[in-house]
Design a protein around this nucleic acid. Structure first.
Length: 559
RNA sequence: UGGGCCGUCGCCAAGCGGUAAGGCACCAGGUUUUGAUCCUGGCAUUCGUUGGUUCGAUUCCAGCCGGCCCAGCCA
């Protein structure tokens, strides 16, 4: 492994403790884990938690982690998802030891099934799906045996071989483990372990028409790979007795240990591939990589860094408690990372024209701006300045409250890196809308300071009109209006209609690259931005990854 | 009324019988040519609850209360 991601080595949790104990006792020689996605959708932030756990723990204990595609359901899986998943795992910064498919083990699995049949531990059931459900009982009533439960071994074997040979239609027979119809754990009431599906599989094509189910496949795949610790989410806790039963009966050389942890729930998002797929299918988002999606591809396009996602995963911990993580935690992880790495630039989202009346008409000069306020390694750049500039509409108020220390009539503010200006006049159209501002500047304040050292509290950003580059900017808000949209019955009622506002006439300073090259910028005072995948030289498009923390907005709101 | 699991600050989360870490959020100051960043300080006499064991319990035991998961030929 050569992971570039760093994790606090001091992080601890009950799974790391369990692994430490297994290593200390000698039960585990070399730690082997696996991340086992089904290629039936794109990875989301919830998967990131599992990826960071599995790969992180493997790295920290000098073991390794496999990326295994759990592809036992040919009707839902395809290569588009396989490729997207690989890309996302690599993007996060992790390297797998091997990258098998569960379907690579179909031959072995079939042999294991035969073994179970021969041992009398599995039988072919010819009841319909409905009948099987009926006879399984309920949460409070035990199941009852169907008419095929005691079929002779030879007949089971013949039927199963004929199933494999394609002699039967979908649903005619299934192979069931023979365990305990009275168990309080419904998973143990003779679970189906093989079914007939005449479907083309993305990896094995038409080689098979019978497919093993999750419970039969997973533990055996783990065993085949020598996985020592099979880490999964809480809903599989009830499956652990079955996981262990299968391994005991088949008795492969190795018996992995399954440990469950709680899945990630993030406010205002959904971590369910099925539901995310619905959003895509319904056209409620642009696609899996829509920047509002909690998918890794969406977050990447939005401008999240892999480091910030890994940091987030390390921040939230691993437990068995159902929890709901506040958005603020993710936002903090993102801002924290972007703050240190993003170069600063100036851009105006809602331009307000401003004319400096005492500045020479045809003059143009260049002022120097720091690319990062704390880190000189990022260097400086030259920014064009001229008589007509754009400032942010929000930075001007005609009737400003005491605490507002930006521009208003008669007040002086600093144009970042440039000059002090004082507002002299407000130009309005016939309807009274503010059209532009007329100001004067103090030639002695070049660079943003004066010899008299007078106090200018406000500093605002600006862009020279003659040099500005017009751009489209996507501003984002949360996709949903409720903290737990996954609980909603229909998405229409909880989806935020204003989750994406498009600004068509934003103005950028010239020194900004905008051709989809994934450079994270901070547009000063506005937030972090990244050029969108569709951005071109002719039509620059930027996505706002995240706004800056805005104390003024809070003060303004409480007024 | 079946089986499994969980309950420590607003949200996460350490703690493993010796007297409540940390992060996020929040509040109050300081620095600041981003109302950003950064820095300082504040923020659980209490660990769902009631009993029990113990010199001593968030940690052990029992009851109760609250929450989550399971009846796919999905994973």
């Amino acid at each position: 492994m050569s992971d570039s991601v760093s994790v606090g080595a001091d992080t601890t949790n009950f799974i790391r403790d369990a692994i430490s104990a297994d290593i200390a006792s000698g039960k585990t020689q070399k730690l082997i884990t696996r991340f086992p996605p089904e290629p039936n959708g794109y990875l989301h932030i919830g998967h990131a938690k599992s990826i960071c756990l599995n790969f992180g723990v493997a790295r920290d204990f000098n073991g390794y982690c496999n990326l295994r595609f759990d592809d036992t359901n040919p009707e839902k899986e395809n290569v588009e998802y396989v490729n997207a998943i690989r890309e996302d795992v690599e993007w996060l910064g992790f390297s797998w030891h091997s990258n098998p498919f569960a379907s690579d083990y179909f031959d072995q699995l079939y042999t294991y099934a035969l073994q179970l049949i021969d041992q009398g531990d599995a039988y072919v059931d010819s009841q319909s799906a409905d009948e099987i459900r009926q006879n399984r009982g309920t949460l409070t009533e035990p199941g009852v045996a169907g008419p095929y439960r005691d079929r002779p071994v030879e007949e089971n074997r013949r039927l199963f071989e004929e199933m494999k040979a394609g002699k039967y239609d979908d649903g005619e027979h299934v192979l069931r483990a023979k365990i305990d119809l009275n168990s309080g754990n419904i998973n143990l009431r003779d679970p189906v372990i093989y079914r007939i599906r005449h479907a083309t599989h993305h990896n094995t094509g038409d080689t098979w028409c019978i497919y093993p189910l999750y419970d039969f496949t997973h533990g055996l795949s783990d065993a085949i790979e020598g996985v020592t610790h099979s880490l999964c989410t809480l809903e599989f806790e009830d499956h652990r007795p079955l996981y262990d039963w299968i391994l005991e009966k088949v008795n492969p050389p190795f018996h992995p240990r399954q440990i469950e942890f709680s899945r990630l729930q993030l406010e205002y998002s959904m971590t369910s591939k099925r539901k995310l797929n619905q959003l895509v299918e319904n056209g409620q988002v642009e696609g899996w990589d829509d920047p509002r999606m909690p998918t890794l591809s969406g977050m990447r396009r939005r401008g999240f860094t892999p480091e910030s996602i890994v940091a987030f995963c390390n921040m939230i911990g691993i437990t068995k408690k159902d929890s709901m993580i506040e958005m603020g935690v993710l936002e903090n992880a993102l801002r924290d990372d972007l703050n240190t790495r993003a170069e600063r630039r100036m851009a105006v989202i809602r331009p307000l024209k401003l004319v400096i009346e005492n500045y020479p008409d045809d003059q143009e000069e260049w002022v120097t701006g720091k690319n990062h306020p704390q880190n000189p390694d990022y260097g400086t750049r030259e920014i064009p300045f001229s008589k007509v500039i754009y400032i942010e509409r929000d930075d001007f108020m005609e009737e400003a409250p005491r605490k507002f220390f930006r521009l208003s009539p008669g007040r002086e503010v600093r144009l970042r890196f440039a000059y002090y200006i004082t507002c002299k006049e407000v130009i309005k159209d016939n309807e009274g809308n503010i059209e532009s501002l007329v100001c004067t500047y103090d030639p002695e304040s070049r660079g943003g300071n004066t010899a008299d050292g007078r106090k200018v509290k406000g500093t605002i950003h600006w862009v020279s009109a003659a040099h500005a580059v017009k751009a489209t900017i996507n501003l984002y808000d949360r996709l949903f209006t409720v903290t737990n949209p996954g609980a909603a019955t229909d998405f229409d009622s909880v989806i935020n209609p204003e989750s994406n506002s498009v600004i068509d006439d934003a103005m950028l300073e010239p020194a900004i690259e905008h051709c989809g090259n994934s450079i994270a910028y901070q547009f000063e005072r506005l937030g972090y931005f990244i050029s969108d995948t569709g951005s071109t030289e002719e039509r620059p498009v930027f996505n706002r990854t995240m706004s800056l923390r805005d104390t003024w907005a809070k003060i303004d709101q409480s007024r």
